[in-house]
């Protein structure tokens, strides 16, 4: 069960379109399928297919608001990947490195 869950997470993350959908939800959580299709160069069918894979991997959770299905980024499986390989004492230094990378790579 555990191994299969991990496989689903990594398989779901292996696709650039699906990572883009997660980026979109990271920027703005709780979007409908329609919202997600805007600004994506993908057909509604493709977005919907990718969302189903992300949902199965539990990287996306949904919430019904009346008849609207809202999609949320669920970072819990990613947190578990992090907790598996990143030790407690490394977090601060890794944050520092990420910040440095962001700063140096920022287009000025």
């Amino acid at each position: 069960m555990k191994g299969r869950d991990d496989d689903r997470v990594f398989a779901a993350l292996a696709d650039p379109s699906r990572r883009l959908l997660l980026d979109r939800l990271f920027a703005e959580n709780g979007l409908t399928l329609g919202n997600l299709c805007e600004r994506m160069k993908m057909s509604r069918q493709a977005v919907s297919k990718h969302l189903a894979i992300l949902e199965r991997a539990r990287l996306v959770t949904t919430h019904w608001r009346g008849r609207e299905k809202l999609h949320y980024l669920n970072p819990v499986p990613i947190h578990q990947v992090q907790a598996r390989w990143i030790a407690k004492f490394e977090t601060d230094r890794l944050d520092l490195l990420s910040d440095l990378k962001t700063r140096l790579e920022r287009k000025s």
């Binding site: 069960m1 869950d5 959580n29 709780g30 539990r58 959770t61 949904t62 919430h63 608001r65 009346g66 809202l70 949320y72 669920n74 970072p75 819990v76």
Partner: peptide, 14 residues
């Protein structure tokens, strides 16, 4: 009807 800011989900063997 309000909209959650976050929705998190986890499966736990319990």
């Amino acid at each position: 009807m309000d909209k959650p800011t976050f929705v998190y989900q986890i499966h736990i063997a319990t």
